[in-house]
Amino acid sequence: MTVLTLTDMSVKRGACPVIENVSLTLHPGECVGLLGPNGAGKTTLMRAALGLLAHDGTSSLAQMTSMERARACAWLPQAREIAWPVSVEKLVRLGRLPHSGTKAEDAAAVAGALAQMGLQAYAQRTATQLSGGEQARVLIARALAQDTPMMMADEPIAGLDPAAQIATMRVFSDLAASGRTVLTSLHDLGLAARHCTRVIMLYQGGIVADGPPAEVMTPENLAQVFGILAHYEMTDRGPVFQTLDILE
């Protein structure tokens, strides 16, 4: 069974290719980290996979009707936009828009999402008055409330404090452990190494490596894709990854 299949996906911006011939299959139970330097095409790949961008090739999500897709995959964009001073609870409830469930189901999903992100105490606060990191957590809770088999997130943990970063990655790996699929772009390679079951390394619009973190985050790949030197070690407290230097 697959959750997302991309076949020969290409996206052009003008004449310049941003994504070229990417094929990829995601399965239930995978927490996939999408790694790559700025401008590698991470966001473009995810938006095209959702059908939000014009593309060549096929994406199983983009072929669905917009409502089917909204019930199949939750999307957490990089821009953290909260336009109006609504309460946290109301904002998270927006994730229920694609569903035509009962009030009780919606309330349960909203309460569950707030609990997962540790936001119960914030439910009645005004979302726009929270700090940036808190807003980011509220928006993740909104995507969780959408209660979809798949979640796609664009740099969801950027700007969060260390505890919140770990907690968020745990929420994602728990989702995967419960049989769902998470695809998230990340710049924190250490957290990717510890929490992702699979990482995909994207460079100049193409996939360079795809597999378990230990097999993908090799010195050669890191040098080629990020131009960095790093230390990777399997310890009795899990994998430890530390960036060391820029390669000249």
């Binding site: 939000l52 897709r69 939750a74 909260i82 336009a83 927006l94 928006l139």
Partner: peptide
């Protein structure tokens, strides 16, 4: 309501 979260998020929610 969905647009409260921006155009991208709204589009992905079926709008």
């Amino acid at each position: 309501d969905a647009l409260t979260l921006g155009e991208d998020a709204a589009a992905a929610m079926g709008v």
